[in-house]
Design a protein around this nucleic acid. Structure first.
Length: 491
RNA sequence: CGGGGUGUAGCGUAGCCCGGUAUCGCGUCUGCUUUGGGAGCAGAAGGUCGUCAGUUCGAAUCUGGCCACCCCGACCA
């Protein structure tokens, strides 16, 4: 069924594409740049959604849903916002088709032209702020803390499964506050939520930081982000949280009366993560044999494979497994028993490794005699024979060990590939040799940042939070700098 | 939108220079033997060679148009 994957070291892009397709996560669709997320991939996304959603609710947010279409006039109300998104918008111009009078097929009915074109949302700030205008009058209406799970469309030039697709699924939080301070606290809080999610559930270490002006979200005062390092040495922006100031409130005229009776514009934030997290998850941990999923997000945490020569043996194993499965499930562990007779054990082993199932239990006649099972862990490929007593406890413990180990491995990799660089030559050499995160001095000007990008294809991923101050000289211009910033080539 | 490349079975390919009705592998189906790391043997099914036109007795192969996709740039969660 599934064939050999391309080796990760030989062609990283090909390996990634192969893995996504062959592990049954997603595939390219008939629509340019759009993907089909297959059931197994969607099951992982659902788990991500479930945990994120809980974290949002725990921090006081509620879900709502806003329209897919945005009237063009809304879109143009915030100047820098238009500028940022104009080049990648899908636009609806007509509302009807008709049979082609000259021949076969259907054509767009020219009589059905919309008076005002509709933009398919690339993000929902405008339609949401237009709505908030009607919801907010007084400080008693604040803070307004809303999240929506939705799909958005950005007409990108080039796409890659999960990392950049024309249509993608995401969540976008949009909040309104009475004060600037409160909004900034919210911006930071949600960044922390994302970082905690990445590290605890995805087992993916991230760097929290602030974007430079060049990389800032269109319409934001400040953009904060979490940046992760992929195994090929490229950085991936995994989530963003924006402090929007009063930009959107002013554009959509959202004012409130304060406790003191003064009329003022509200302060806003927005924050989001997308199905891109799936790409991050895959690229953070997987190897030449396939996916490596952290137990916290694996749709199947334990797979049990029977080994037998005849139906009598299978029947005995079935009975034994039924007990084991029940015990594991009682601990909330997701177990699959694969006793299909259509595939052989070796085939199943390879298949579940490809799919990243953290723990595999094999049980055969030998085990029945000795009261044991063979337990294999996906992350290290180690196989151990376990006594059956207290098996569910041992497995539960193993799963949490695997979760920790995957995180530690990713963290070690990142630490080994984060390097301080002080000269331009060294900067270019590191980028070309192995990539990774580079901490280097920068003179703080957008022009220099732009120039570095043109020369090296590396960008400033962020200015890390709580960054250590340190005197130095810009790697490009030699002008003075007060701190190192995080550079990398990125997705 | 610039620069390069590719379209042959579900997937991956050979054949093209030098025209004669398509090769091989994977997968699929059937049967027997297998089952503790992607099984073996035997057999079978599956193709308007991207598309339209031209040259020719004859086109996957030569010529021209069109279409689609991929890679490199600009853009980007």
């Amino acid at each position: 069924m599934s064939e050999q994957l391309t080796k990760r070291s030989e062609n990283y892009a090909q390996w990634y594409q192969d893995l996504v397709t062959k592990a049954g996560l997603a595939e390219n669709s008939a629509v340019r740049g759009c993907m089909v997320i297959k059931p197994y991939g969607y099951a992982i996304w659902e788990k991500m959604q479930q945990y994120l959603d809980k974290m949002f609710k725990d921090t006081g947010h509620e879900n709502a849903y806003f329209p897919l279409f945005i009237p063009k006039s809304f879109f143009s109300k915030e100047a820098s916002h238009v500028e940022g998104f104009a080049k990648e918008c899908a636009v609806v111009t007509h509302y009807r088709l008709k049979n082609d009078p000259n021949g076969k097929g259907v054509i767009v009915d020219p009589d059905a032209k919309l008076e005002e074109e509709l933009i398919i949302r690339p993000t929902s700030e405008t339609i949401i702020w237009n709505t908030y205008k009607g919801w907010i009058q007084s400080y008693r209406d604040l803070p307004l803390l809303i999240n929506q799970w939705a799909n958005v469309v950005r007409w990108e030039m080039r796409t890659r499964l999960f990392l950049r697709t024309t249509e993608f699924l995401w969540q976008e939080g949009h909040t309104a506050h009475a004060t600037s301070e409160e909004a900034i606290v919210e911006t930071k809080q949600m960044l922390d939520v994302y970082a905690e999610f990445a590290e605890k559930f995805m087992a993916m270490p991230v760097i929290k930081g602030v974007k430079t002006a060049n990389e800032r979200f269109a319409g934001a005062i400040d953009t904060m982000c979490i940046e992760a390092l992929m195994q090929d040495g490229k950085a991936l922006q995994a989530g963003t949280s924006h402090f929007l100031g009063q930009n959107f409130a002013k554009a959509f005229d959202v004012k409130f009366t304060s406790k003191e009776g003064k009329l003022d514009y509200v302060w806003a934030t927005s924050w989001g993560v997308s199905t891109r997290l799936m790409g991050a998850l895959i690229m953070s941990h997987s190897d030449d044999d396939g996916l490596v999923l952290p137990p916290n997000l694996a749709p199947i945490q334990v797979v049990i494979v029977p080994i037998y020569k005849n139906n009598d043996q299978l029947k005995m194993i079935d009975e034994k497994v039924a007990v084991i499965k029940k015990e594991l499930e009682a601990k909330g562990i997701a177990v699959k028993y694969d006793n299909r007779d259509t595939q052989k054990p070796g085939w199943k082993f390879a298949e579940y490794e490809l799919k990243g199932v953290p723990v595999r239990i094999a049980i055969g006649p030998r085990d029945l005699e000795q009261g044991t099972v063979e337990v294999a862990r996906r992350d290290t490929k180690e196989k151990t024979v376990y006594q059956m007593t207290d098996l569910s406890l041992k497995i539960e413990h193993l799963l949490s060990q695997i979760q920790d180990n995957i995180y530690k491995k990713a963290l070690d990799f990142r630490d080994a590939n984060t390097i301080n660089v002080d000269t331009w030559d060294e900067f270019m050499k590191v980028l070309d040799d192995k990539g990774g995160f580079i901490m280097a001095h920068w003179d703080g000007t957008p022009e220099t940042e732009q120039r570095i990008k043109e020369l090296s294809k590396a960008t400033i991923r962020c200015i890390p939070l709580n960054n250590r101050l340190e005197e130095g000289k810009c790697i490009l211009t030699n002008k003075p700098s007060s701190q190192r910033v995080l550079f990398a080539r990125s997705y």
